[in-house]
């Protein structure tokens, strides 16, 4: 038991991260409105919220359309269908100098929630109201909940995937590093156990790479709209997959050769450095925009890049999966070692 403490730590971290990824609520927000274009004068529209507690706090529900940093157009509640659906009406004045408006709603529970660029105003249609009516932009804060996942348009609940998808890649990198280390040691020492270790960790890295590709593909489909996108990170992922697969094809076809382990080690070292060149250097050189967070060109992610709440789950998830990956590698190595000594 004492000897296995690190395996227990890994298991606990993975269980903690998985449980928290599902248990904690997403911040309230607005998913969509039924129309995106308003005309001058009287308009009605309905709003689909998320965790928005329209019924629970119906008495304090209010909202406005933001024009600029000070001015706002008030909206009135017509009908609350349930906690996430409600209808509103708004009177758009004639002398409006902006065409794009943000929608803000608030109640005691959720505080201010908003949908950026919710409406465009078509100035050529409708009967303008006689009097221009503006109020001030005012934010309110809701109940304080200790941990919530940040609400992002298009991403919504799938932000929880961060704790599943990204640790797969981190684990793969750690295992690739391990594989490189053992390949170098094999070339310097000629001990067959190092070759087995390099092969085992590459095998487990391939498994995590595949899982990372599959989870990333599913996530990309529902956040960006495609199973595969042209993204600098995806190039790196594809090439590490191809190189790992080629490494095993090489091992298989060199099975009966006396210097099989040496060839495999040379190829492994070569492929590691090429993968690193592709992942680390190329995106910076070619200036390719990435949809992934941490790079520019993705406003949807920028606001939570350093969210401290998210880190509380994300770092343990990474650590837990890395430890689990090393554990799986250890099992794989022990089996291939047994196989080697038996035959």
């Amino acid at each position: 038991m004492v000897k296995n403490w690190w395996k227990i730590v890994g298991a606990v971290l993975v269980i903690y991260a998985t449980a928290f990824s599902f248990l904690r609520p997403l911040e309230p927000g607005i998913i969509q409105t039924d129309k995106t274009e308003l005309i001058l004068g009287q308009n009605t529209f309905s709003v689909t919220g998320y965790n928005s507690h329209f019924v629970d706090c119906s008495s304090s529900l209010k909202g406005f359309l933001r024009v600029d940093s000070v001015r706002a157009i008030p909206i009135t509640v017509l009908y609350i269908k349930d906690n996430v659906h409600a209808e509103f009406s708004v009177n758009i004045p004639a002398n409006l100098d902006r065409t794009v408006l943000d929608l803000f709603l608030s109640n005691d529970r959720t505080g201010s929630i908003f949908l950026p660029a919710a409406f465009r105003v078509d100035q050529s249609k409708g009967n303008p109201a006689a009097l221009a009516e503006y109020t001030n932009v005012a934010f309110s804060s809701g109940e304080d909940i200790s941990f919530e996942f940040p609400f992002q348009l298009r991403i919504f609940d799938t932000i929880r995937n961060l704790n599943f998808h990204v640790p797969m890649w981190f684990t793969m990198f750690v295992l690739l590093g391990l594989s490189l280390w053992y390949s170098i040691r094999y070339l310097n020492s000629d001990k067959i156990e190092y070759d087995l270790k390099a092969a085992s960790s590459a095998k487990v890295a391939l498994i995590f790479c595949t899982l990372g590709l599959i989870t990333g593909s599913i996530w990309a489909r529902f956040a960006w709209g495609d199973w595969w996108t042209t993204d600098a990170k995806l190039n790196g992922a594809a090439v590490s997959f191809l190189l790992l697969a080629a490494y095993f094809i090489l091992r298989k076809s060199a099975e009966d050769k006396p210097n099989k382990a040496k060839i495999a080690a040379v190829y492994n070292i070569l492929s590691f450095f090429m993968t690193m060149a592709l992942i680390m250097v190329l995106p910076r050189l070619t200036g390719a925009a990435s949809l992934h967070p941490g790079e520019d060109g993705n406003p949807a992610f920028s606001s939570y890049d350093l969210d401290s709440n998210l880190r509380m789950v994300f770092y343990p998830a990474c650590a837990g999966w890395i430890i689990t990956g090393i554990w799986i590698y250890n099992l794989h190595y022990r089996i291939s070692n047994l196989k080697n000594t038996q035959s």
Binding site: L243, I249, S253, S271, L282
Partner: peptide, 20 residues
Amino acid sequence: SQLDFKGGIITVLGLPLLFP
């Protein structure tokens, strides 16, 4: 050459390395 040029192995090994 150490693998006796088994069918097509050179493209499988080489192409992904040429990517960057």
